[in-house]
């Protein structure tokens, strides 16, 4: 993690899109009117969805929308590293997990591929299509190594697969998310040895369970 600053080049203005505003109002309505600044994180997230990143005019617009001091919005947006303070790749934002399990399973090799194909990390690629980052644990350790690309997890990656995914994105395709070594989500890699008794799934095992507080009182 490094010092987080707003980008040097900022757009002149920012406007909420109709859909963003609609969802933002839905979030604001969840809180009492005098505490509407509670919606700051969801709305920052919406703005990031709309623009790809959070620009300075957007920070001011959010502060105005939520009637809160603009420095408070800046505090939030700089605190959470998932808010992008600089423009990111329009096609794909690749976040490679670099925490221990992924690192042990070869996250370094994935990053080498990214560096080779896209450029230095945290920097927008020359064509403006890609950005890659190293992030902390994304919670998919059983499918290590993995990366989050835009909104989806790409798991059990090899440097070869990583390269192909990047190429596919560059070619305008949408590579399928999920595991890349043939298994379904995070089930055992080769043969399934456990939890394969059908009675586990037909409800028969649950019949004798006595749930607490289900007996009628008295």
């Amino acid at each position: 993690m490094s010092v987080r600053r707003l980008a040097k080049d900022q757009p002149k203005g920012f406007a909420f899109s109709k859909e963003t505003m609609k969802t933002a109002q839905w979030w604001i309505a969840k809180y009492p009117p005098e505490r509407k600044q509670s919606a700051v994180i969801p709305i920052l997230w919406l703005v990031q969805k709309q623009e790809g990143w959070v620009c300075e005019p957007a920070i001011r617009a959010i502060a105005a929308l939520l009637e809160m001091p603009v420095i408070r919005v800046l505090e939030v947006v700089t605190f959470y590293t998932m808010f992008m303070l600089e423009p990111v790749g329009k096609t794909a934002l690749i976040q490679v997990c670099g925490t221990t399990p992924c690192m042990l399973r070869g996250a370094g090799d994935l990053m080498a591929v990214c560096k080779d194909k896209i450029g230095p990390r945290d920097k927008l690629s020359a064509d403006g299509k890609f950005t890659w980052q190293e992030v902390e644990c994304l919670g998919a350790c059983c499918n290590a190594p993995m990366a989050q690309i835009n909104d989806y997890y790409y798991e059990d990656l090899t440097p070869f697969e990583m390269g192909r995914i990047i190429d596919d994105f560059a070619a305008g395709k949408k590579p399928k998310p999920g595991s890349y070594d043939g298994r379904k989500s995070s089930e055992p890699k080769d043969a399934v040895h456990t939890l394969n008794d059908p009675s586990l799934y037909d409800g028969s095992k649950a019949k004798n369970l006595k749930l607490p507080n289900t007996e009628p009182v008295g």
Partner: peptide, 8 residues
């Protein structure tokens, strides 16, 4: 409210 503590 103009002074704040940014980043973490």
């Amino acid at each position: 409210p103009e002074i704040g503590l940014i980043s973490r």
